[in-house]
Amino acid sequence: MADIKFDKLLRQFGQTKAVDHVSAELGSGRFVALLGPSGCGKTTLLRLIAGLERPDSGTITLGEELVAGPGHFVGPEKRRLGMVFQSYALWPHMTVAGNIAFGLNQLPRVERDARVSDALRMVGMSAMADRKPHALSGGQRQRVALARSLAAQPRILLLDEPLANLDAHLRQSMLAEFRRIHAATGCMMVFVTHDQNEAMAVADTVGVMDRGRLEQLAAPMELFDRPASPMVARFVGHGRTLPVQVAQRDTDGNCHIRIGDVPVVVPGLVARGPAWLCVHARDLVIGSEGIAATVASVRFEDGYHVAELLLDALPEADTLPVRLDSPAKQGEAIRVRLRGGWVLPRGGAAHPKADVAMSADRHREPA
């Protein structure tokens, strides 16, 4: 078993801080997902763990071993890590078994064959050991790439967007495989993805990154219920942040606010003053005594009727539409009741619409 520790980790490319003084500890045996928009630094952080990038400052510790720090660097070949890439990187002229055995040439033949056999069985590919990669489907090739990493018995397995080339059905199948293999091996896994549904489906711990910073490291449910920053609130679950004023915070940790003429009590961290009210579609329900709103648009998505609402008490320029998973008519005036949410201090946080613009114009991470 091994854990991963970062201390003030920095990696720059020119003036861009791809990883910006990140400090964190990822517990041994965990399935960790690094999540965020393109260019947020998640792939660079994974490459730093792997030893494919050298940090400009800060330290990385794997288990009890310092692998990167001032005047000290352990190469990737000595870190005992496995890595599965977005591309399968299989040798086309070798069989499935040959691809898996390729990195095990230093082992005795009997041990090498045993590891190949165990890895094939673990990913359900024993019957295809003699096939060549061109005779496999995309999902099967990804299983071979996974088996190749597992056969090396790594202390940590790194997964760099391994499902990006698969269709939706195969992605779900491979997510189930990752969960099963993690449970069977206990090997720590770090999974990079920009797809939050993938991250929430497999990981017990999710790190949300933005512009090189680790915004929050927590269990999936906590990211929804108690986002640590406005960025997390807006990014996870298509949440929205509404500008409000907190009148008071009671002894139970609830914030008393008003939206228009409706008093609302929501848990949060703000004692008094300007704040963000963080809400998801699940936090709103149609109710006659609720907050006045206008239906801006409607659509049918993933089996649900979805309405985008503008709250009448908030100028359109101050907020993005709030999602409501309920049938409605475009242009209809309705009222919605708040049955959940979370309040964060507003401080100098960016305007809600800024994150949308930045996600479209964000720098690309180095390969």
Rank of each mutant, 00 (worst) to 15 (best):
E77Y: 06
E77V: 04
E77Q: 02
E77L: 02
K78R: 08
R79C: 02
R80D: 09
R80M: 07
L81S: 02
L81T: 01
G82N: 11
M83C: 02
V84F: 03
F85V: 01
Q86F: 10
S87Y: 12
A89D: 00
A89V: 14
A89P: 02
H93Y: 12
M94E: 03
T95N: 08
T95S: 15
V96R: 09
A97F: 11
A97T: 06
G98Y: 13
I100S: 08
I100D: 12
A101K: 01
A101E: 13
A101V: 04
A101G: 08
A101H: 04
F102C: 01
F102E: 07
G103I: 02
G103V: 11
Q106N: 13
Q106E: 14
L107S: 06
L107N: 10
L107C: 10
L107K: 09
P108M: 13
R109D: 12
R109S: 11
V110W: 04
V110A: 15
E111D: 15
R112L: 13
R112T: 09
R112I: 00
D113Y: 13
D113R: 15
A114Y: 07
V116T: 07
V116F: 07
V116P: 01
S117N: 14
D118Q: 13
D118W: 14
A119V: 14
L120Q: 11
R121H: 15
R121M: 12
R121Y: 03
M122P: 09
M122L: 15
V123M: 09
G124Y: 12
G124E: 10
